[in-house]
Nucleic acid binder design. Structure first.
Ligand SMILES: [Mn+2]
Ligand SMILES: [Mn+2]
Ligand SMILES: [Zn+2]
Ligand SMILES: [Zn+2]
Lengths: 139, 139
DNA sequence: TAATTATTTGATAACTATTATCAACATGCT
DNA sequence: AGCATGTTGATAATAGTTATCAAATAATTA
């Protein structure tokens, strides 16, 4: 398991438990996953894990900013491990989410718009909804 | 009440009820409002309105695309009447939401990024989280 | 305007999602 | 190994959303 993750957990007095690591591993493999997806996946490894444990971990990991929430229109939130800022292509049909690199231009442009309103921008979120390559074809 | 709204309701066999109009009026006045905010506000006019009625109306209005959902990170969704595409400045402290015009540049740039992945973009959503003018000062 | 039909409303039950509680247990430290 | 503290799993408690249905209302027609 990644050193920097364990590092960050310890920094915030979060213990390195097998359940927690499996949740993080699931997020790594899925890229983006909902509570239910995480729960089902982690159960394959920890047969008796409680759904409450998943919720509690997600909350802790959000607090220490190891993961972030992805609130979606007309669907349940997904979660992802925080890495470089990026944007999302979200398929309205199959729900798949693909990362794309947020161009510098867009980010600069956005913070310019924000500061014009005397708003202190901290985070820019760009989501593009539509149909993914696959769903576009099999329609 | 706006003609085009009534028009659109009738087009979709949605009856023009006082409750429905008050919900739309609340959204107009608030700009962006959550279910609870709408419920509390509409109750001032229709003392006995049921929360279920608010939910049912929001669902109907979403379906006919008179309103849209605004899914937020770590907060309940807000709803707004659909008008020209625009972006949002979302204050992490007080929760206020301000509309800003999404620049043409950003939109073009976004759909370029999308089509490079063979993704059929339909809607671009840009949210900027941070501190609003007010909260930035009184900190 | 009265009758007819379809939709909506309000009350509330049912269901789903999330959080709180707590004793047993595991982790990290000395 | 022993201690302190955080975590887990079970489950109760809350909160949020959807389903049900009879009564009421809106729209249409005669
Ligand atoms: Mn991502
Ligand atoms: Mn808006
Ligand atoms: Zn798809
Ligand atoms: Zn603010």
């Amino acid at each position: 398991m990644k050193l920097d993750i364990i590092q960050k957990l310890k920094e915030h007095d979060l213990k390195v438990t097998p359940q927690r690591l499996t949740i993080l591993d699931t997020l790594n493999r899925y890229g983006h996953a909902s509570i239910d997806e995480i729960y089902k996946e982690v159960k394959k490894v920890h047969l008796s894990i409680s759904l409450a444990t998943v919720y509690k971990n997600i909350t802790s990991l959000l607090q220490v900013k190891l993961i972030k929430e992805l609130a979606l229109n007309e669907a349940k939130s997904k979660y992802e491990i925080i890495k470089e800022p990026h944007s999302h292509l979200i398929c309205k049909k199959c729900g798949s989410i693909e990362d794309i690199n947020l161009s510098e231009q867009i980010e600069q442009n956005a913070s310019k718009l924000a500061s014009a309103k005397e708003f202190a921008a901290e985070e820019t979120e760009l989501n593009i909804y539509g149909l993914c390559k696959n769903c576009k074809q099999n329609n």
